[in-house]
């Protein structure tokens, strides 16, 4: 009955048009074309990716052009850049969403290095500029569903995490990836709070990390990421609650054991390791059945896996998603 009500409440603009549905098929196709980058990666491997900086042309940071996509594959209009850059959850700076932009303005994001190591054959520290040259950014319009019950549709630029994973050649024992964000209380005043287990850390199972949807983002709306959005490089995992998409990454480590994650450490019952968007599994303290898209006043039904079920459902086959929330 509820669902019926929702169907009626969805503005006509939100209903997927056939053309959008078709473009979604194209989008999926494009994703697989993205795998053409594999050829490039193969080249990397053969030439020894340990020194890709030598291959990359210095000083030519490709502009991640925003191609002007206005809707996601479900036909939902993208959120305004103004909202995306002024409404941020980034406790490293403040718990006040609209104060992050100002507080983070002077964060030094260049030069910036990301240490990639652990159970890999080719551990390396990459400069972010170098990553952008090695893995040219592509555009992905993704829904971002926050555990607090709001969502945005964001035109990211970035590259598939799988490309970086292939480049460093994980060992067969690697089953998880651990991500660590910058820990610098001088630049990030929120980290002076003892209420939180700094630094921010996150984790994915290796197959989740390799999924074609999982992105390392360096830009949005065609501009390099602003500090408040996770500059210079952040994770984007669109079928999981927003807090999984860790910002300002300095370390990526391949592991055999499941890594600790920031919110799971704080409240294990409330924030599971998987944190897949799931309207059927409430946060113990609030419901997850609906959400409000920022900029729109009406609540809509939250979709399982945030609407990316076709691409990710198989990752969790046979798993109890309530148990493994």
């Amino acid at each position: 009955m509820l669902n019926h009500k929702y169907d009626r409440d969805i503005p006509s603009a939100e209903i997927t048009r056939e053309s959008d549905y078709l473009s979604r098929r194209r989008f999926l196709k494009n994703l697989s074309i993205g795998a053409a980058g594999a050829a490039f990666l193969a080249a990397c491997r053969s030439s020894g990716v340990t020194q890709p900086a030598l291959d990359a042309t210095p000083g030519s940071t490709p502009a991640a052009a925003y191609t002007g996509g206005q809707r996601d594959e479900l036909g939902r209009a993208i959120t305004s850049e103004q909202s995306i850059t002024t409404f941020n959850n980034y406790y490293e700076f403040s718990t006040n969403k609209d104060g992050i932009g100002e507080l983070s303005r002077n964060l030094v994001t260049s030069p910036w290095q990301v240490e990639v190591g652990g159970l890999v054959h080719q551990p390396r520290t990459f400069d972010v500029d170098e990553l952008i040259r090695l893995f040219p950014p592509e555009e992905r319009i993704y829904r971002m569903r926050c555990v607090e019950g709001w969502s945005m549709i964001i035109p990211w630029q970035g590259f598939q995490l799988s490309k970086l994973i292939d480049a460093v050649e994980p060992m067969t024992s690697a089953r998880y990836i651990h991500f660590v964000a910058l820990h610098d209380p001088v630049q990030m005043p929120g980290q002076e709070s003892d209420y939180f287990p700094w630094p921010y850390e996150e984790g994915l199972r290796l197959d989740e990390a390799r999924n074609e949807l999982t992105l390392l983002s360096t830009g949005l709306y065609g501009r390099p990421l602003s500090p408040q959005n996770g500059a210079p490089i952040r994770l984007v995992v669109p079928w999981k609650y927003g807090y999984k998409s860790i910002k300002a990454i300095v370390k990526i480590e391949f592991r055999e054991e499941q890594p600790a994650t920031f919110w799971n450490t704080i409240a294990p019952d409330e924030y599971g390791f998987y944190s897949n968007v799931n309207p059927a599994v409430d946060h113990p303290r609030w419901s997850q059945n609906t959400e409000r898209i920022i900029g729109q006043p009406v609540r809509i039904a939250t979709l399982p896996f945030n609407g990316y079920g076709d691409q990710v459902r198989s990752l969790y086959e046979g798993m109890d998603l309530k148990e493994n929330h």
Binding site: T95, Y195, F196, P197, T265, A267, E270, R285
Partner: peptide, 16 residues
């Protein structure tokens, strides 16, 4: 206390 994110028992989260 219940409406903010955090955990009173471990004194962590958005409890200020």
């Amino acid at each position: 206390f219940l409406v903010v994110k955090g955990n009173l028992l471990s004194l962590s989260g958005n409890l200020a």
